[in-house]
Design a protein around this nucleic acid. Structure first.
Lengths: 345, 345
DNA sequence: TTGTACGCGTTATCAC
DNA sequence: GTGATAACGCGTACAA
């Protein structure tokens, strides 16, 4: 049976001060850091009283009094996605390391939700808002979002963007173009020529960069004219494209490169349904190097992104004032694995 | 170049009221629901002013004035883990559906961190605290945590536990015992006899239940004496156990069951390193049915858990007062896939 | 229906 | 070094 005494009032600073026989400001100075000094005897009594009463500062009240909170808001597309999950995890870790709380909201890839969420989150008075993912190739349509973020920034908040190069705020991203380009060069170097590139039907800048980078990389190596498709941005979308290829097209291919690991695996599933063996009959490569895929066989060739570095940089920017929008690009580099063995020519 | 006008003050209800030519309480009644009615003309002017100024309610201030916030705090072990990631995602979705914000903190499986986090989160004045994962088999050691949670509860907060049956609060879990038991019966039914069970070296009640359930299931089917090991609770731990088996032990086995999919995959990797083919030489089964593993080959036999139902129930409990601690058990059921084909006896 | 006055828990400014 | 007192933005009795 639970105690029936009805909702008690939480223990406040006042309670602690009274119990310790000091004034409330003094208790405040002891418990929540202040420049001012407090006599040792008082200090001990306050700490003792706080411990005995189980005092915890009321963060909303602190935030209001101080005018700034220790919370950062993270807006992400889809946390169940292993890629965003990993990114969110890294951000949580970094934030915690500097004593910040994190409030997470998901857009589920809907641009309008994004705007609403930012507006709502602004109400939480977070110290910073981090926007991860999404990022349209169509900047003008983002104007309302930019306005909203600007307003937030004007009141002292920090805005940090991850992996979206379209908005005029501090941005951390990785080198989508260069990563894909180097991957293409390496693969061309071990014999791959006839490639199918799977982009995305969504207007995501980062995905477009990956497609462009890959095509450039092939061109660097003297391979021209990769086929490019833009299926639905998902495992299923990639699989469906493969399932829709004619037998001739399929037979002709040596490699499928998809702009995410998730899609690469969809393609892989589709290729298997079509009766092809991976990697004996055809190679597959992705992008992201998602940890949770380490058990896929054959091990997937992909482009690795240092998410920990991305998160660290993002949290750093989120806590560091910065008069001008800055862009930091974290390198991405290819990792060739069993899904793309060297081809004998 | 960014505007240099220095941090402006955010737009407050007062600003809106002034702009609309009404009193602050009237603006409050219009913008943030109140029982009281406001004349239509006033209503419109307030709404218009709010829109024009870009007003967003200051949530911490609201929380303080109302004495309750619209935030729930989620404490989880490890969000990068696909299992917890999926659970967190479902909770975010459910919370959003009822208009609640979510603040996430990770314990990284350290019991002391858990206590600290709860204390800290309490300061955020969330409407509820949801604890997911962990859950020691050693309840006495949790007393400080229980005390802290009780204190929180006494001030009107709700406490909900997911998948840990050791504490006297509202609990949502899934039937670890029964799920594993039925899996064992099904596998025994298609010929599996000589099994290695991989538990966990951590004192987690849910994992212990899975081990017990599996052994019971085997017993139900007349199979006695499964070997049980308790490796480190991770992919690597499971793999290492397999790598450490003698050739004789290995040859004798027909199945490895691990208490999580993650560990099952570790075991699978280890088995392959030992030169065994899966499933031709030996079967492998896990628990959790993690979505992101759909591309593992062979498809992993496992126990499915309806995380969406778990999340829904948890958020429901988090928002519904309840005089007595209640337990709700969500079913878990085996899903037999290619990693455990029928054995010819 | 509307406005005045006060309180929520905390920090900051200022005398002492 | 310490303690009154005034903010912070909002909700809500209460009076008008």
């Amino acid at each position: 049976m639970r105690s029936e005494s009805g909702p008690k009032r939480p223990v406040t600073l006042d309670d602690v001060a009274r119990a310790a026989g000091v004034s409330q400001p003094t208790a405040s100075r002891v418990l929540n850091g202040s420049a001012r000094k407090v006599a040792e005897s008082y200090r001990e009594r306050v700490l003792e009283a706080a411990r005995a009463l189980g005092y915890t500062p009321n963060l909303p009240a602190q935030a209001m009094a101080r005018g700034t909170s220790r919370t950062i808001a993270l807006v992400t597309s889809l946390i169940s996605d292993p890629y965003f999950g990993a990114l969110a995890a890294e951000i949580l870790k970094q934030a915690e390391a500097v004593g910040l709380h994190v409030s997470i909201a998901v857009t589920e890839r809907r641009a309008d939700r994004e705007l609403d969420l930012v507006r709502e989150l602004r109400g939480q008075q977070p110290r910073a808002i981090i926007l991860a993912g999404s990022g349209s190739v169509d900047p003008p349509s983002e104007q309302p979002l930019v306005d909203e973020l600007r307003r937030y920034e004007e009141t002292g908040g920090r805005v940090v963007l991850i992996s979206r190069s379209d908005l005029p705020f501090d941005t951390v991203d990785f080198d989508n173009h260069e990563g894909a380009r180097q991957l293409a060069r390496e693969l061309a170097g071990i014999g791959y020529r006839r490639c199918l590139v799977l982009g995305s039907d969504t207007p995501l800048l980062s995905m477009r960069r990956r497609v462009e980078g890959f095509v450039h990389g092939l061109a660097d190596a003297g391979v021209a004219g990769a086929r490019v498709r833009h299926p639905q941005f998902s495992w299923v979308g990639a699989r469906d494209v493969v399932l829709g290829l004619s037998n001739d097209e399929l037979r002709d291919l040596q490699l499928v490169f998809a702009v995410t690991d998730d899609m690469a695996l969809g393609a892989l599933a589709g290729l298997r349904e079509r009766g092809l063996r991976i990697p004996e009959d055809i190679g597959v490569a992705g992008f992201d190097d998602i940890t949770t895929l380490r058990d896929v066989v054959p091990a997937l060739t992909t482009v690795h992104v240092a998410l920990d570095a991305v998160a660290e940089e993002a949290v750093y920017r989120a806590t560091t004032p910065d008069p001008e929008p800055t862009r930091r690009t974290v390198p991405a580099y290819p990792v060739v694995r069993a899904s793309t063995p060297r081809l004998l020519s």
